[in-house]
Design a protein around this nucleic acid. Structure first.
Ligand SMILES: [Zn+2]
Ligand SMILES: [Zn+2]
Length: 668
DNA sequence: AGCACGCCGACT
DNA sequence: GTCGGCGTGCTC
């Protein structure tokens, strides 16, 4: 038997659904250190792990196994281990699964087969700035001065708040430049969809080199290279979607969250987390500045500014010098359309004027496809999904009915599944319907469909945008994808088909979402007009609505004031903390039994409200029945701990899936 | 998550 | 008798 004194004991966090660490032996000569990635035997399998602590010494020595190998890589630094711990605790996730995210382009096999010759870190020389910076205006200069000061302070969370086109990007580029000068790493988080070649070009023009780009479309081998760069290189700029947050940076100097309010930062599948909120924690952990940038900040962020947790940097005007557009509200009760049509006469008249005048117009409707509901007038049958209790959306171009929740599709046949004398009618418009309506009115016009159905491929997107910018397109019909800050020079008129998106849906953030979306879409109009202003027509059945009024008046402060008041009255976030439990099962009976058991052992605290169980608004998705609980408390309570204790007090049958959503945004 | 162990019904 | 279903519990 070997001498046990030649070994040391280390605690290893394993990649997988584990919350505690497991102790292993490792030869002292191997000089194991906290932060090393290792391969260990575990039961009958071999797993990837991370040395998390020196040793806990809580287990009998005879049971200990030896580490198989230590992967030859720089250490993952302590702040990132703390981040893993915090992340798991905050989001009620397994620590081991967070580790899995952190090493994501690798698995236990590929990390052992690391071929260092092929994965030479990217040449840092290439990140030497030799670009040209745009001249900043007075406000931009002030803001960037504040940001640069932030590098020397402890409290350093900034909100960069300015209308679309006010030059927020150029302003935070100053901070990026500062980091590069000091040989630091920079992480820029963008919504998945905002990460375009347009953005990359803009960066390259300014800095003279290309940033590393990280999103779901990047190949695995490229991702491995970037992962290694973040671990080896002292100096780099990485732009990425939310998952870039998990890269093992070794010398991070600044984080930017662009389009801070964007809902795509909230991960809703697998491990649920909010990338913006986690980025704020990470920045404070490493003690570096973080810049949140948006033309329409989230209510949460505005609240943090009010609490003086963040400092607000305000850019009041468009950098091009043009005025913000005029917004007119079209009362649909006074301007009704004939049945089956959705564009009012006023709207069509304005479109005609612009069309004759060779100007581009954008028609915005936040609904993909042709029609969200098809029903049979003869028998009342509705075209529904087989796996969900949702309506299928007709997509006319592809001749299918599509489920927007699970992707199920069915061919459009013209027959009815409920009777033999089909009289199918489409209820409600989608962008395809609007295109149909437009081409009836303007038979010779060129109309471009700009929605995620047509745009999901990057090259198709670039092509589409090029076509629009070349002026060949008369009408752009688009969903929210168009709101994402693309600069379209000759676009002077925006028509919003349905301004009432804030009134239905009815979750706590619907007003906020409506305000943000419509403000961003309106901001597309007239960005390059010199003497005139752009124009926006906003069709609505609720012209008196407060949200629409604040949009029309462009009174941002008033909107946030009203909305914060409402949230306060209702004890809703950001004045309280919410956690959703989503329980699902293939069997309705199992689901309801378990839900009841969970209800029975729910904690009873004075300051914790538990609502439920209730069938989810979408109570059947992908072949599974779903119930929900909603837990609420004030923010002084660490509600996650209460929920964790509750859940661990009951054994969960294998046929039940229970998902915990901290700070939920989606209540379906 | 895997994987083994174990306990019960049905099938050579 | 024994093959295989999946409910339960452990893995350093
Ligand atoms: Zn479906
Ligand atoms: Zn029918």
């Amino acid at each position: 038997m070997e001498n046990i004194t030649n070994y040391q004991i280390v605690s290893v966090l394993l990649s997988g659904p584990y919350n505690k660490t497991f102790d292993y032996l490792v030869e002292k000569t191997k000089q194991a250190k906290v932060g090393q990635i290792v391969i260990v035997p575990f039961g009958k399998q071999e797993l990837l792990g991370l040395i998390f602590e020196r040793s806990k010494n809580k287990i009998k020595k005879e049971k200990l196994k030896k580490i198989k190998s230590i992967v030859n890589l720089p250490l993952i630094s302590k702040p990132f281990l703390d981040f893993t711990e915090f992340f798991a605790s905050w989001n009620c996730a397994y620590k081991g699964n967070v580790l899995k995210l952190m090493v994501s382009p690798f698995d236990k096999k590929s990390i052992q087969n690391l071929d260092y010759k092929n994965y030479k870190p990217i040449d840092e020389e290439k990140t030497n700035v030799k670009g040209n910076f745009k001249k900043l205006n007075f406000y931009q200069k002030n803001a960037s001065k504040e940001i640069l000061n932030g590098f020397n302070k402890n409290s350093n969370c900034f909100l960069l708040d300015g209308v679309a086109g006010s030059g927020k990007t150029e302003t935070y580029f100053e901070g990026v430049n500062h980091c590069l000068k000091n040989n630091k790493q920079v992480l820029i988080l963008l919504p998945e969809i905002g990460l375009t070649s347009d953005w990359e070009e803009r960066f390259k023009k300014t800095f003279g080199f290309k940033p590393l780009v990280w999103h779901s479309g990047i190949t695995k081998s490229k991702k491995k290279k970037i992962w290694l760069s973040s671990l080896y290189n002292k100096k780099l700029v990485l732009v990425g979607a939310r998952s870039a947050l998990f890269l093992p940076f070794n010398n991070l100097g600044l984080i930017v969250v662009d389009e801070e309010h964007d809902l795509s930062f909230k991960q809703e599948e697998g491990i649920r987390y909010h990338a913006r909120d986690m980025a704020i924690y990470l920045a404070s952990k490493i003690n570096i500045p973080i810049i949140l940038s948006s033309a329409t900040p989230s209510v949460e962020t505005i609240f943090n500014v009010k609490l003086k947790k963040f400092s607000s940097l305000y850019l009041p005007s468009r950098a091009t010098g043009s005025d913000l557009p005029e917004i007119q509200i079209i009362d649909m009760k006074e301007n009704p359309t004939s049945s089956g049509n959705w564009l009012s006469d006023v709207m069509l008249k304005e479109l005609l004027t612009r069309y004759k005048n060779n100007e581009q117009s954008l028609i915005f409707l936040n609904r993909r496809g042709y029609s969200p509901l098809t029903l049979c007038k003869n028998c009342g049958h509705r075209v529904q999904c087989n796996n969900c209790n949702s309506w299928l959306v007709e997509h006319k171009k592809e001749k299918i009915y599509l489920c927007h929740y699970c992707g199920y599709k069915k061919n459009v046949t013209g027959d009815c599944e409920g009777c033999n004398e089909a009289q199918l009618v489409s209820c409600g418009p989608g962008v395809e319907k609007i295109i149909e309506e437009l081409s009836n009115c303007f038979p010779n016009a060129v109309i471009e469909n700009f929605s995620s159905d047509t745009i999901n491929k990057l090259d198709h997107f670039t092509e589409s945008l090029k076509k629009i910018k070349s002026g060949k397109v008369d009408f752009i019909v688009g969903t929210q994808i168009i709101a994402k800050g693309y600069d379209i020079p000759n676009l002077n008129f925006v028509g919003i088909v349905d301004g009432d998106i804030g009134t239905y849906g009815g979750d706590l953030r619907s007003s906020e979402k409506c305000f943000q979306l419509l403000t961003q879409v309106s901001g597309r109009a007239g960005r390059h007009l010199k003497k005139k202003r752009g124009l926006v027509y906003l069709q609505t059945y609720n012209p008196e609505s407060l949200v629409l009024k604040t949009i029309k008046e462009m009174n941002k402060d008033k909107f946030y004031e009203e909305e914060l008041n409402f949230r306060k009255q209702a004890s809703m976030p950001p004045f309280s903390r919410l956690i959703s439990l989503i329980i699902s099962s293939k069997y309705e009976k199992t689901l309801n039994e378990f839900s009841y058991n969970l209800f029975e052992c729910a904690p009873k605290y004075k300051d914790v409200d538990i609502l439920g169980p209730a069938p989810a608004p979408l109570n059947f998705v992908r072949g599974r029945y779903r119930n929900r609980f909603l837990v609420r408390s004030n923010k002084k309570i660490y509600l996650q701990n209460i929920v964790r204790d509750w859940i661990s007090s009951i054994k969960i049958p294998r046929s039940i899936r229970l998902s915990i959503d901290v700070d939920p945004y989606n209540f379906m």
